[in-house]
Design a protein around this nucleic acid. Sequence first.
DNA 1: CGTCTATTTGAATGTACTCAAAAGCGGTGG
DNA 2: CCACCGCTTTTGAGTACATTCAAATAGACG
Lengths: 193, 193
Amino acid sequence: MNTAILLSQINQYVTLNEAETSYLESIVITRSFKKNEVIVQSGEPARYLILVNAGFLMTYYTDKDNVDHVVQFASNGWWTGDLYSLAQDVPTIYTTKALTDGEVLLLPKLAHNQLLEKYTKFEKYFRIIFHNALIRLQFRFIENYSTTTEERYLAFRARYPNIEQHVAQKYIASYLGITPEFLSKIRKKLSRG
Amino acid sequence: MNTAILLSQINQYVTLNEAETSYLESIVITRSFKKNEVIVQSGEPARYLILVNAGFLMTYYTDKDNVDHVVQFASNGWWTGDLYSLAQDVPTIYTTKALTDGEVLLLPKLAHNQLLEKYTKFEKYFRIIFHNALIRLQFRFIENYSTTTEERYLAFRARYPNIEQHVAQKYIASYLGITPEFLSKIRKKLSRG
DNA sequence: CGTCTATTTGAATGTACTCAAAAGCGGTGG
DNA sequence: CCACCGCTTTTGAGTACATTCAAATAGACG
């Protein structure tokens, strides 16, 4: 089992001893996936926190008019998973799908809770992880209010240069909150100007 | 010093013993404020996590074109403060201002760090707080993509019925990400139809 | 090669914005 | 207590950004 990425992720913020490391390794599940495979299906309760070990994933939700909206692209070292569904045991509205072949580590809900209870170091780790995720989401939020769509597309390309090659433009449009047609027009404008 | 709200806030998620309670009480600072007073000024590094004890606050940031965008209204029992500025010691882009007379409890940055180190129960508490804040922000995010502006205004009114009376319409418009003129037109339409 | 899906292009439409002016409202001083 | 001042809200006209719908073109993959 390849937990190197998980451990280096965690050791950025806390220093795990042997007991903590081996306990963690004993409870995570490795799962490999193929391109286009669905890792988490909306409508079912979320069961895992997911860490991407290799490859690319995207997560989208389906609104009441049956339109998909991409909310996250995830690669190497990124956590994903529906915290709300995990906490409340309600069906998740998110679907997570593979953009490439790859591998994830699954941390089952129950194991996660036990981990927090058994070693407070993981309380600290997840406190920091949630803290950082909150800051990033706040940043994305205010970016939406103070930049044009064109600027946001350029920022996206700058921030995730290696994602664009794996994902259809319509999903990038969805992530940016615009239609594929309009993204196509922005790209045309940029290539001319 | 009135720490009742703080303690009941925290005891929703963890159970503090006497040592933890009295330590916490020894490090928070009470500060009362008047309507229109600025609690935190953008441009300076954030120094406190802030819990509202009484009254209403709003937090907004000022973008590169000098336009204000309201990001949060806070009342009784709500935390506020710029996590990024606190963590990185950079100037905050947010200004926090009083909408009414009231009182806040201030948790200084250093005291917060000491609290986390000294009692791991607070790691758990803040892990949960950040976790919940993240879920709420994710929800707000997807709401923006899948509802009309009119629906968002109605949802806002339903969610914060007691805030509308304290705050100028232009700030609600700002919170919703629209111009005051457009909110006025939405309201006219709603009152007719 | 053919089929299916993604992307591009264009025309018509709609949603929200800008700018300007009028009306409403609250607080302050005479 | 009322009149005035400054700020907020309303209203309207014109405009810009982004959407919808439809059709043409390009690409991917069996």
